[in-house]
Every structure is written in structure tokens, then in C-alpha cells.
């Protein structure tokens, strides 16, 4: 039997941490997605390489 009673403040802090974690995960996913799109489109290829291709 646990005597540790969770206070409402802990719930709020937990929610804040989960929110921040999800925001960061979402941001990583967006940067990854953008990188894939830009690299596959050849946005970062040097001008010379594009002319040769």
C-alpha cells in the first residue's frame, strides 16, 4: 500500500512535461520531414552539380 498521495500540482507538472516532450518530438519530425523533402528535391546540390546532371 502506497502512502504517497499525488498532489494536483504534480499532475499539472506532468502535463507540462508531456506537452513539452510532444512539442519537441513534433519539431524533430518536422525538421526530419523537411530535410527529406529538400534533399530529395536537390535543394542543397551545388549549382555545378545541377548543371552536370
Amino acid at each position: 500500500m502506497s502512502f504517497k498521495v499525488e498532489h494536483e500540482i504534480h499532475h499539472r507538472r506532468f502535463g507540462r512535461n508531456v506537452g513539452l516532450a510532444l512539442t519537441l518530438v513534433g519539431f524533430i519530425a518536422i525538421v526530419f520531414g523537411l530535410t527529406v523533402v529538400k534533399v530529395t528535391r536537390g535543394d542543397y546540390e551545388p549549382e555545378q552539380a545541377r548543371i552536370q546532371n
Binding site: 494536483e8 500540482i9 499539472r12 507538472r13 502535463g15 507540462r16 508531456v18 506537452g19 513539452l20
Partner: peptide
């Protein structure tokens, strides 16, 4: 007093 000052994620979003 401390309880009312603690913000949740929704408060920052607001």
C-alpha cells in the same frame, strides 16, 4: 499561493 502560481501546459499555450 504556490498552487495558484503553477502553470500548466495549457496556460503557456493560451
Amino acid at each position: 499561493h504556490t498552487e495558484t502560481q503553477e502553470a500548466g501546459f495549457g496556460d503557456y499555450f493560451a
